[in-house]
Design a binder for these strands. Structure first.
Lengths: 112, 112
DNA sequence: TCCTTAGTTCAAATATCATTGAACAATTGA
DNA sequence: TCAATTGTTCAATGATATTTGAACTAAGGA
């Protein structure tokens, strides 16, 4: 049984910007953007916060329509809603990801 | 005596996105983008909120580095920090403004 | 069946945000 | 000087947001 996701028409710019205005959540989408082909399980973000806290932030991202969450056994596979976001807000995701690339948090990621 | 503004190096992506994740503030920058050549006084935003409330939101935008506020007599002239934002976060402002253009709030503006 | 793994939900505590009206300050024009 | 115009500051209020640990659920494997 899938989790609730907003439709493309329901995507709201203020909501999306508000949700992305947080270092943890920017970190999450930076991780996801590293290889958009492979969805990540929640555990993949564990160095960004506690399990409970990540559950909270990942729900925010999903509810805002930034990410898609698929249930796979006991795991949740998280991916960026790239197509939907690009259709609704062209260029927005890319400019945010490019800007996030210069973030200290992401500089850390680069070193892995 | 000028008001405090963050330097270009101090511009923070999460802070900027957070500040723009609000309908009133998105409305303000949409107004400003209508004619970037002419700064607007606070009074120009009065249909977006009360005087007091606008003072609050305009301070948020200035403190995040989104807008510049120049003192001119009893007025404050507000403008977008287009150059600084483009230098630090290329394409970000434009994609947000383009996305904001499809907002209901901005549809109202179009009719003026 | 029993245990482990992977996440969620809940309640509580704290912090931050948004909005308002009243009072205030500074500039300008009569 | 007086009064009007433009905004800011303050205090109070109510609404959201963030974080935590404990308890919980659901799926998989031994």
């Amino acid at each position: 049984m899938g989790l609730p996701h907003p439709s493309v028409e329901q995507l709201d710019l203020a909501t999306i910007l508000g949700v992305l205005g947080d270092p943890t959540r920017l970190g999450i989408i930076a991780y996801l953007a590293r290889d958009e082909g492979t969805p990540l399980a929640c555990g993949g973000f564990l160095d960004l916060g506690s399990k409970t806290n990540l559950s909270y932030h990942l729900a925010k991202l999903r509810e805002a329509g930034v990410t898609r969450t698929e249930v796979a056994g006991t795991s949740r596979l998280i991916s960026l809603r790239r197509d939907d976001l690009d259709r609704r807000f062209p260029g927005l995701l890319d400019s945010i990801l490019a800007s996030a690339r210069h973030l200290p948090a992401h500089a850390g990621l680069e070193a892995r």
